[in-house]
Design a protein around this nucleic acid. Sequence first.
DNA 1: TTTTATTGTTACTTTTATCGCACACTTAAA
DNA 2: TTTAAGTGTGCGATAAAAGTAACAATAAAA
Lengths: 225, 225
Amino acid sequence: MSSTLQTLDRGLLALEIVSEHKEGITIAGLAEQLGVHRAIAYRIVTTLEAHALLTRTPEGPVRLGAGITLLASRFEPQLHAVAQPLLKTLAKATRATAFVSIAQGKECVVTLVAEPDEGMLRVSYRVGSRHPLTQGAAGIAILAGRTPQDDDSPEVCQARAEGYSLTRGQLQRGAVGVASPIVTARLRAGIEACVGVVAMDDLDTERAIREVKASARQLVELIGQ
Amino acid sequence: MSSTLQTLDRGLLALEIVSEHKEGITIAGLAEQLGVHRAIAYRIVTTLEAHALLTRTPEGPVRLGAGITLLASRFEPQLHAVAQPLLKTLAKATRATAFVSIAQGKECVVTLVAEPDEGMLRVSYRVGSRHPLTQGAAGIAILAGRTPQDDDSPEVCQARAEGYSLTRGQLQRGAVGVASPIVTARLRAGIEACVGVVAMDDLDTERAIREVKASARQLVELIGQ
DNA sequence: TTTTATTGTTACTTTTATCGCACACTTAAA
DNA sequence: TTTAAGTGTGCGATAAAAGTAACAATAAAA
């Protein structure tokens, strides 16, 4: 097992800490959270700033920078390439429409979809469509993937315990949704995403639950623990 | 003038290099591009992997990891906080609907919107809606923000030269769009985003162009050069 | 088959990049 | 005015990387 680089490690940790502070954080505050001298934090910020991963507001505080967007836009096609075949398999196995959704603010956005080729009728779930996190199997699965909150609904708590969520008719009458959060062990927090399927009422839920959970695990393997 | 940290700098450079290789890159290849010994590249990759910013496929190559998604999901509300007031001002000044769009694959997705409070009729542009990059002012502005390609359309070339794009009726009959790419100097590439306005045919284009370009510059300041 | 690359990892020496202190300075509150 | 909290930057000591070399383990070529 090869070792890690202290300086790089700290820098990335700093990036994560900054990302946790929506309103920004002072360099002094960052230094404290990192447990290092201010001067070190200062150099770390300068370096991250040079790569546009951080910005300093004129008043002082440090926030995330535009570089994140660039990286994210490059990650998306990679995720697509990796996850699409997996989704296709999931769609076939469950004979339902499979999807990957991620959180964006208080909403849940569909990023990838695969439809089964069999079946007369099928539910289609458009990429880019969004709905509140509190509604539908996908949203609940994402909430369940977060660290427990006091105000979690019973559904979310159950989904967290079982590893999946199942909803009927929440987004569309007569539709069933099953979703499972994508939980990564290495990160300090979940990645706020889930895999799932939607179908008409005739979904074989037993099987769907099994398959969706398996897909979530596989995705974690492919995408990075 | 404070200095940057070599190790962190190299690590971030490695991250960028990996992000440029959609299919992944071998560690040896990465080491070469970084101009360092293989052993160093290994240590860098291990560290980035520990933060889930990179993953290694079972066959070897290194790709971006899920950590990017987490950072991106946290950047979004920060961008929102910073850009929303600016968009509101832009909407007021131009009496048109102002927006920020980013590229996602071959499409262009609307991420933020602000509507003017005056005016009887107004064009509403829904957050999350998407259309091909080749269509509409927003898409063209993003393409213009990229490094020149051989197959760029005349519109894209013109937008690159002028610093803005203007289209009429491409997405909706009777609608005019003006957009300007958000170009950052520090990054190795553009961030694939733009600011703009959409309105009915009665838009004061002279003014809109001026305001939109100014907004793009301001956003760069706020978000990180 | 042997030979030749390439990959992945470790142990060790060298060197230099990083650490952490220190000092100067600004701003704002007490 | 003093106190406090924060920013920004040189500098020497040393821990932390760099940069070797070396060694299995594959994998590809002869």
